[in-house]
Nucleic acid binder design. Sequence first.
DNA 1: TATATAAATCGATATATTTCGATATATGGA
DNA 2: TCCATATATCGAAATATATCGATTTATATA
Lengths: 102, 102
Amino acid sequence: MELDKAIAALNNPVRRNILMWLKDRSNFPPALPEHGDLEGVCVQYIREKANLSQSTISNYMGVLKHAGLVASERHGQWTFYRRNEEAIRTLLAAIEEELLNS
Amino acid sequence: MELDKAIAALNNPVRRNILMWLKDRSNFPPALPEHGDLEGVCVQYIREKANLSQSTISNYMGVLKHAGLVASERHGQWTFYRRNEEAIRTLLAAIEEELLNS
DNA sequence: TATATAAATCGATATATTTCGATATATGGA
DNA sequence: TCCATATATCGAAATATATCGATTTATATA
């Protein structure tokens, strides 16, 4: 957990929104039938919700992924992104530790 | 509490260090006798600890102050900065809420 | 194999941030 | 009042970030 990179990833309202949206699959259109059993949301759906270009969203997902805050899984042409809950909790704990303790 | 501004303020390792240092007055040289009863640390001491220019530190303290994370009090030629513990706790709660809940 | 679609990468421009030195503004003291 | 010191502000250069459209890459399918 590189705090620096994670905080930088959070330092953008759209990326924070994406993390929030990903808490609940129902923020996005229903999964295709053949993807029903997969976790995560494809870039296209995130793009539509954020209303930014495909390249921007791909970039943002890369930033979130390099920060460890999301994980991705490729299935066919699609990349499905989902929150990394453990990393998010670890980050919160680290920020709290740094800001409050010792 | 403007989350955006507060996260931006945290998105710099020196500013985060300053917030950490300010947790404990003993991270800085002792206060002058005539300042013994004042809370906070003057810009000069913070500057020495951070080893950056005076203008940079003055700027950083302004960023932290506009984000609400520190408060300042002028006494004579000196401005004493101290943590705003309540605002820091509020910020942590807001980040946690945004990242984890609902 | 040719084509369509999803996602990633590239290159560019506009804007923001970091950091500095120089200057301006308080304030306190000789 | 004049000077020294603490801080704030200004203007600039270097670097980083946001965001785009175009291109490339991977995959699926006709």
